[in-house]
């Protein structure tokens, strides 16, 4: 059974300038043992979508969804106590900024053991043993001594490892990682990605991985949702979306990334002229039409249809054909 299924998720934020429509009808589906990547550029609504699923939106936000099921059980009308039992326990999150996610005034021990005892009970010693086990598992040497350190005493890479350990304390079924490696060096990033992939495998978790880096997506994703201006414009297996990109935005993104072995004297990078549309207007038409080089007259008058092909590959666009190979991965 699908681990997480979300249909038509919407998130609005009340701002001084009016209602900002951050997430505009997004579907998300994650299987056990698989990774779904949410990819897209800054501001497209990746974090807001993730926070909505955890009930962690800012107070200025309001959200709705047609369906939100964890393991087949609807969360839409669940009470506060059910939700807080799910959060941090069955579903946990690794945040974009490790410093804001760790409390600077508590030691590593307090933070790790705190979540465990809140959800699993158990005594101090059990919590401590699990903390040490996980710190070692995420590659922190000297775990016993690290327990009494404070977050600011650790390097960025170590902090991110502590956050991963913390997210795993209660053996979650689903882990949501919001750009967990964006602030790290490439060599540290590679270590953390390998670690997350191993842990996902080992624990059979489902994973949602948020990133703007298409290279990272290609290494860690089973399934990809490409987001643009609050909507999923293309979705499919990794091979389908990266190998046979069908939406003009996905194609543009892929052309703009410098590739290994290519020098600027030989070829120019593709660009996507223009900027994202306003977030304040409700707009059923294609959000990409102002920047699209394949735009048709119909794009300015009718909402784009969902075009689908083999292996759940789909794109929201008037002018595309899904030509993807039948999904051979996942």
């Amino acid at each position: 059974m699908t681990l997480l299924s979300v249909k038509n998720l919407r998130v609005n934020l009340r701002t001084d300038a009016g209602r900002l429509r951050a997430v505009r009808g997004v579907d998300i589906s994650v299987e056990r043992g698989q990774t779904l990547c949410l990819v897209g550029e800054s501001g497209c609504g990746k974090s807001m979508a993730a926070l909505a699923m955890l009930g962690l939106l800012p107070p200025s936000a309001e959200w709705s969804a047609d369906e939100m099921k964890l393991d087949g059980v609807s969360l839409l009308n669940a009470g506060q106590s059910t939700l807080s039992n799910i959060r941090g326990n069955r579903v946990s999150m690794i945040f974009q900024e490790p410093m804001t996610a760790l409390n600077p005034t508590f030691t590593i021990r307090d933070q790790l053991c705190g979540v465990y005892r809140r959800h699993k009970g158990g005594n101090r010693a059990q919590a401590r043993e699990r903390a040490i086990y996980l710190l070692e598992r995420v590659g922190i040497s000297n775990a016993r001594n690290r327990l009494d350190q404070y977050p600011h005493e650790l390097s960025g890479g170590l902090r991110q490892r502590v956050l991963i350990a913390m997210a795993l304390m209660c053996e979650p079924e689903l882990i949501i990682c919001d750009e967990p490696t964006t602030a790290l060096d490439v060599t540290t990033q590679a270590q953390i990605l390998v670690l997350l992939a191993e842990l996902r495998e080992e624990l059979g978790m489902g994973m949602i991985f948020i990133t703007h880096d298409l290279g990272v997506v290609s290494r860690i994703g089973d399934h990809i949702n490409v987001m643009y201006a609050g909507r999923v414009v293309e979705s499919g297996t990794r091979d389908a979306v990266l190998g046979c990109a069908s939406h003009p935005y996905t194609q543009g993104l892929l052309r703009s990334v410098p590739r290994p072995g290519v020098n600027g004297l030989q070829s120019r990078l593709g660009t996507i002229p223009g900027t994202v549309p306003s977030f304040y207007q409700a707009d059923p038409l294609c959000p990409f039409r102002g920047r699209c080089e394949r735009k048709l007259p119909i794009c300015a008058s009718q909402a784009p249809p969902v075009r689908s092909g083999a292996g759940h590959h789909s794109a929201l666009c008037h002018n595309t054909e899904i030509s993807s190979i039948a999904g051979n991965s996942a």
Binding site: V186, T187, Q189, A190, L193, V194, A197, D213, L214, G215, V216, V217, S218, R219, I220, R238, D239, L242, G243, L254, V257, R259, P260, S329
Partner: peptide, 11 residues
């Protein structure tokens, strides 16, 4: 440690 969108080499 450099990942390109063309890779499908896994991690």
């Amino acid at each position: 440690s450099v990942f390109s969108p063309d890779d499908d080499a896994g991690l």
